[in-house]
């Protein structure tokens, strides 16, 4: 019994890890292809058919580049920066429900690495810790521009975390649980949270752009002012890890958006499919549906990146503190009033 659970969970963990890596890899290609499409170009099309092998070529190039350490007294911290970024981007996937359950070998397999009671807080904890990767790396680079970028990233992430947390509180008030599995299960059919929490979703979306350091909030890597930002001094695969971590966290935050607000693995007619086609087929469709939602959000991230220009720093702070936080508080008050009225 014990060993089967260990095997089952390790298979799920390895599968999710491989999936995240694969998605992060192909997001780099997708980003370039979508940028090309939006700008009426062709995009990378030399490696493989239609550029399908481009991520492998990029990875090979990064691996074979010269490893360069700047003249810094903190070599250890310099190396550990990208490692923190990468591991924090990957660790969130542990609490995400990728599907309801499968019935294989005479037992129910729950498609989630671990179902903890405080999954939502766990995600916030990981998010807040992931700033260390950028801050430590930027500081250890011993470069003024890197330091500036690290401080920008730090203050930006702290500011937007507040609004994000407040947006989530309204959702938690509504669903009455912090477990992602239960939140996903509550949205069966078309009962998605986006219809009940449109304002909360909007705030969460904007904040998740800021948390992943994507345009229009990518002031940490503002080329015109800061050279390359916090990864100016990084080369070879260490820089690759920073870039990879950004795509991995984009994948994860798309997943969280889909799970929290867009009904996770639920689709209309899921109960009917369970009855007529069996648990397995219905849930495989559910996983595919979740995957489609995730891909949509990844596309959305890229669409925004190639459409909207970067904010100025004071605009960023004004938006965070003077717009999003009051809006999120108003959202909490409205949600509370509605819950009281309908009780």
């Amino acid at each position: 019994m014990e060993s089967t659970i260990i095997i089952e969970k390790s298979v799920i963990i390895i599968a999710v890890f491989a999936l995240t890596m694969l998605m992060a890899m192909y997001s780099t290609l997708a980003e370039r292809k979508i940028a090309a499409w939006l700008q009426d170009r062709v995009g990378p099309n030399r490696a493989g058919k239609g550029g399908i092998l481009q991520p492998l070529a990029d990875g090979l190039k990064l691996f074979s580049k010269e490893e360069f350490l700047p003249n810094t007294p903190n070599k250890f911290l310099f190396v550990i920066g990208p490692a923190i970024s990468m591991s924090m981007a990957l660790i969130t996937s542990a609490v995400i429900p990728w599907g309801d359950k499968l019935h294989l070998f005479g037992r129910d397999i729950i498609l989630q690495a671990t179902d903890i009671d405080v999954a939502m807080l766990f995600i916030f904890g990981v998010l807040s810790v992931s700033v260390y990767g950028i801050m430590i790396g930027g500081w250890a680079s011993n470069n003024k521009f890197s330091l500036m970028s690290a401080m920008r990233a730090g203050s930006q992430m702290i500011s937007y975390e507040v609004a994000m947390g407040l947006a989530i509180i309204a959702l938690v008030m509504m669903s009455g649980t912090l477990s992602l599995r239960e939140i996903a299960a509550q949205q069966s059919g078309m009962n998605w949270n986006i219809f009940y929490q449109p304002l909360g979703f909007l705030i969460f979306l904007v904040c998740s752009f800021a948390e992943t350091n994507r345009t229009p909030f990518d002031l940490a890597e503002c080329e015109a002012e800061l050279i390359g930002g916090y990864h100016t001094e990084y080369s070879s695969m260490k820089m690759g890890f920073y870039l990879f971590a950004e795509y991995a966290s984009m994948f994860i935050s798309s997943t969280i958006l889909a799970v929290l607000y867009f009904g996770a693995y639920n689709y209309p007619g899921m109960d009917w499919a369970v009855e007529n086609w069996g648990v397995n087929i219905a849930n495989v469709i559910g996983m595919v549906v979740l995957f489609a939602k995730i891909c949509f959000f990844i596309f959305f991230y890229m669409w925004i990146r190639w459409t909207i220009p970067r904010f100025r720093y004071d605009q960023l702070m004004n938006l965070g503190w003077k717009m999003l936080i009051p809006l999120a508080i108003v959202n909490i008050v409205i949600t509370g009033a509605v819950i009281l009225l309908f009780q």
């Binding site: 009671d117 807080l121 904890g125 807040s128 801050m135 500081w139 401080m151 730090g154 203050s155 702290i158």
Partner: peptide, 25 residues
């Protein structure tokens, strides 16, 4: 669990980042 995660969020995630931030600044 709750206490552990809140501890991480508040102390490691917020207070220490502000502290590091101040030291760097």
């Amino acid at each position: 669990q709750f206490l552990a995660i809140v501890h991480v969020i508040v102390y490691s995630g917020a207070i220490m980042i502000l502290m590091l931030f101040t030291i760097m600044l």
